[in-house]
Design a protein around this nucleic acid. Structure first.
Length: 568
RNA sequence: GCGCUUGUAGCUCAGCUGGAUAGAGUACCUGGCUACGAACUAGGGGGUCGCAGGUUCGACUCCUGCCAAGCGCGCCA
């Protein structure tokens, strides 16, 4: 409908230009917006304000001219000029109820779009890397935020016509893994954090004890043998990594997050990708030797100082394999790559992009895209929770899922903008009331399902055909508000996908649920507004609207990875 | 000191690529069920959008400076 009005306005303005009423101005993009206030009509356009200056006319005068020259259209009841020069459009009934037919026809696909398609109409490839936790311990809340945000971005992109690859990158080759292996080995030998041999940067969590015990007990895990040899550091290292990767997989599965590709840092070394990347950087002249180390001139690409690539001990710094890894992504053909990670790693962005530019293989400057999430703090009983028993120094994702469930955890972690800090209130997530948006939204869904069950028991089965034919009977303020919100869903999906901003879906669903509850409650105030009225046509029209609303809630929750229960 | 991010109601946060009177929830006050699930809802009070300039017909939104908080500033990852 917005498109139609856009075109009509464009035709009107072009007409005014061709008959010389207006000078030949260049048209900005014509924005038609849904109004917030019903008294402003259904849709509004600010084009007269935008064009006032270049056309040399007063905004209201210009708006009048545009309205007078607007081609007639059955879907538009009337227009008015308001405020400084807005053109408000009042739509015909069918223009408002058509969305219900679209929803029922498209069902689970309603709201999807083709942003991700190329000129030929085929899905383009996008790759999203997220979580990418080091296999050195259980996933913590921050990883959970990354998982929830990253996975929802993937769902949004899929719904927007992209062919999405979800990828997890393991840093399984660096110093942190050495620390892990040492910690496990010491535990195997009966040494703990209280002993003098325990290293400063050893891992102290209880899970290291469990891991060491399983290794010594000879329990193989994911193909890694548990040799039970306390002095075999290579075997311990392999076992520890396999053990913790397996544990992370279990947590992610419980969180409804899956990946298509797992990439290992160690593979980049063993396949020679790191060496070849370094060789290319040297050959391109962006490196130099100093203080016994090899440096990359990242300052040539906007960094505030150059960075060491190869340490004086001969090993590489972490960002070198990162560059090799991202070169690989590019070579695999991904023009669109999004990395979702914690903001505490934001300094890597400049380095990785600098390294990619220095490779000079045609990678665009701002590639890849990054979505950074800020820190999460967990509150319970009004106090910050900082530790879990197993991990020792942080709250684990599995703790949260266990305490408040997957649905609430996912919703809360994705409901805020990624770049603002998040306080996860466990008490709130556990509440089953209006305070808790997850339950509020799920309750709206369950409520519609309940009404449908009641309809069958008290009257006749819901007849969609009758309902669709009598949507014009939907006339109350609550019904009109609901229709308007439903019509906004596709835009919500499109803009959320474009901005990699799943939190918009979360707040949309809250609004939609509120509209639904308000409509339902209007029937408690006045019986004639109930959904289940005696009149067959009216009842079925309302149930059709209810079913469409239910469908959109289900679709939206799906984008967040949250379930849509029929009973609660 | 430098960089990134944030600063909106007492609290937790939205605010759609600048648009009409800045919105929700919570908390506080006042109403609504012999129930289509009240796990809900109607209404009220509550704001110098961190501060100060600038751009614009119009700024919470864009630019500059300052203030405050978080994160980063390793030959750790």
């Amino acid at each position: 409908m917005k498109d139609i009005i856009q075109q009509l306005i464009q035709q009107a303005i072009e007409g005014l230009i061709s008959n010389k009423t207006l000078p030949p101005v260049t048209l900005p993009s014509i924005k038609v917006e849904r109004t917030r206030d019903p008294s402003h009509g259904d849709l509004a356009c600010n084009i007269a304000l935008a064009l006032a200056k270049s056309s040399g006319l007063a905004p209201r005068e210009l708006a009048t001219l545009i309205c007078e020259n607007l081609p007639a259209n059955q879907l538009i009841l009337s227009t008015e000029i308001a405020g400084p020069g807005f053109i408000n459009f009042f739509l015909a009934k069918t223009a408002k109820t058509d969305v219900v037919l679209q929803i029922l026809e498209q069902a689970a696909c309603f709201g999807h779009n083709q942003q991700g398609h190329d000129e030929a109409g085929k899905p383009r490839n996008a790759q999203v890397e997220f979580v990418s936790a080091n296999p050195t311990g259980p996933l913590h809340v921050g990883h959970g935020r990354g998982a929830a945000v990253g996975d929802s971005i993937c769902r949004l992109l899929s719904a927007s016509g992209w062919n999405v690859t979800r990828e997890f990158y393991y840093n399984d080759a660096g110093q942190q893994i050495n620390n892990l292996a040492t910690s496990v080995q010491l535990r195997c030998q009966g040494v703990g954090p209280d002993d003098s041999q325990w290293p400063e940067d050893g891992y102290r969590g209880e899970y290291i004890v469990e891991l060491a015990a399983d290794y010594m007990a000879g329990k193989p895990i994911n193909g890694a043998l548990a040799l039970a040899e306390a002095n075999n550091s290579a075997a311990i290292r392999d076992y520890a990594v396999a053990y913790l990767r397996n544990e992370q997989d279990i947590d992610l599965k419980a969180f409804r997050v899956g990946f298509d590709v797992y990439s290992l840092e160690s593979a980049l070394y063993s396949e020679g990708k790191v060496d070849s990347t370094v060789a290319a950087l040297i050959a391109n002249g962006f490196t130099y030797e100093a203080d016994g180390a090899l440096w990359l001139k990242t300052t040539d690409f906007g960094d505030d100082k150059d960075r060491v690539m190869r340490k004086s001990d001969g090993s590489y710094t972490y960002f070198v394999p990162d560059v090799a890894y991202h070169l690989g992504k590019w070579q695999r053909g991904f023009k669109t790559v999004i990395n979702e990670q914690g903001a505490d790693h934001h300094s890597t962005i400049t380095r990785v992009r600098a390294g990619l530019q220095a490779l000079n293989v045609g990678i665009p400057k701002g590639w890849p895209d990054y979505v950074l999430h800020q820190m999460v703090t967990v509150m319970r009983d009004g106090v910050e929770v900082k530790i879990s028993k197993r991990a020792g120094s942080y709250v684990t994702l599995s703790d949260l899922i266990e305490q408040v469930g997957c649905d609430a955890t996912r919703y809360f972690l994705v409901a805020r903008r990624a770049d603002s800090q998040l306080t996860f209130d466990i008490d709130l997530a556990l509440q089953k009331s209006n305070d808790n948006p997850v339950f509020y939204i799920q309750y709206a869904h369950a409520r519609v399902c309940s009404v449908m069950r009641q309809a069958v028991e008290k009257w006749k089965p819901f007849d969609l055909t009758i309902g669709k034919e009598h949507l014009n009977l939907l006339t109350s303020d609550a019904e009109l508000a609901l229709l308007k919100t439903l019509a906004a869903y596709p835009d919500c999906v499109a803009s959320s996908a474009r901005d990699f901003a799943p939190h918009n879906v979360a707040s949309y669903l809250r609004d939609l649920a509120a509209n639904l509850h308000a409509w339902y409650a209007s029937g408690s105030q006045q019986k004639e507004w109930q959904l289940l009225v005696a009149d067959d046509t009216l009842r079925n029209a309302r149930l059709t609207l209810a079913e469409a609303s239910r469908q959109v809630i289900e679709n939206g929750l799906e984008l967040l990875g949250v379930s849509a229960p029929e009973k609660m």
